[in-house]
Simulated scan of single mutants.
Amino acid sequence: MPKYPTVNYIGNKEKIAKWICDQFPKEATSVFDAFSGGCSLSYEAKHRGYEVYTNDILKINFHIANALIQNNETLLNEKDIEIIFSGEPFKGFMTENYAEVYFFEQECKELDLYRNNIEKLDSEAKKSIAFALIRRAMVRKMPYSRFNLTWAKIIQLRDEEYSYEKYKRKRAYHNQSFKFHFLQNLDEYNSSIFTNNKNNIAYNDDVFNLLDQIKADVIYLDPPYSGTMNNYFGFYGLMDDFILSEKTRPFNNNFIDKKTIAELFDKLFSKLKNFKYWYLSYNNSSLPTKEELLSLLNQYANHVEVIERDHHYQITGKEKKQKNKEYLFIVQNKHYQTQTEPKKNNIFNDERIIHSNLMSEIDSLV
């Protein structure tokens, strides 16, 4: 059976994707993953035979989805690899803007070459697989797997002797080449691609531009958890710069600002009429609180259920673990029911909030 490849995406739901999909109603046949990120939930839904629609505002996340979810059969072959790695590194956008900011100058020249060569591939699916693999290589070379460190800190953490002295690990993979990491992960990514014989589609847009266009039985919502460290543009925006060869700006509607997050959720919930079932992932360290989210959701639905499980995030090391409860809000849309079918007895109890404390899991973000 094809397996979800190693993506290294902070906040990824890989270890609880099966648990989330287990909650979907039996009659559902389609899922819209509106903040798809690293696509672990979409990948599990595709495995289960759902027609899957993904969306993410980051261009690199769209390419992950295009490679793994929309793509059913296209792989990278030896000729493609020869194209990507042919030629001599040169000074281009990445060198001019990010040499000795995130990577050494020679590494940035290599990225400029690979970006130019990816454009020569003969299909959009191949380009997306290549971008996903270059992303994996860039993340693998970056301490803490995110692009919000200073150059001085990067230099320090890429020093294998310092790393060994401080962490008892040399982390030599930070100093392996992009090509080494790309080729090391190539077979894993190629073997993860499969068809479920459905018309799965990947989108790259602000979620608010799509809510009136996409119709699915289930919408799954996994926005950034406001009040936590999850700033996805800060973590991964560099990769969009690499893809577009331009400096991109932080996007609107980013679900990060604690001052506007409640208003943004209210706006989101008000526009979900196309979806009969809503599933929202959140946790106890984030804002709004569980109670505040319930209050907002109850304005749009009579039937709201919350299930939860312990979930551990390992942020930087063994001594810095943050224990969280992961919430899954489950909503049946009363407006959808009123518009499309006669009212039925519902499996949800209006006043009931179920606490299902399951086994704790370690979700390593390093």
Rank of each mutant, 00 (worst) to 15 (best):
I243M: 04
D112L: 07
I353S: 04
S286A: 15
V139M: 07
D56C: 02
N283Y: 03
I307Q: 12
Q339M: 07
Y203P: 02
N349R: 06
E78Q: 14
V306L: 10
D33Y: 05
W278S: 01
R136L: 04
N349A: 06
K120T: 09
Y189V: 07
F348G: 01
P25L: 09
S360W: 02
A301K: 03
I10L: 14
L211F: 07
P288G: 08
A202S: 15
S123I: 11
M142H: 02
K15L: 10
N302A: 13
D56V: 02
Y114C: 06
I214K: 03
C21L: 14
E292S: 13
K13A: 06
K126L: 02
I307K: 13
N8D: 06
K59L: 10
Y167F: 15
S30E: 05
N116Y: 09
T54S: 08
P224S: 10
I307V: 15
Y114P: 00
M142C: 08
K290N: 08
L75Y: 12
N199M: 11
K15A: 05
F104V: 14
C21P: 04
H174R: 13
K79M: 10
A152H: 11
Y4D: 00
I60K: 00
V366D: 09
N199G: 05
F85I: 13
N97D: 08
S281P: 03
F235R: 00
K321H: 09
K334Q: 10
Y173C: 10
T6L: 12
S281Q: 05
P342V: 12
D266M: 09
V31S: 03
K259I: 04
N199D: 14
S40P: 01
K215A: 12
T289N: 08
G37Q: 03
I353W: 03
F255K: 06
N357Q: 12
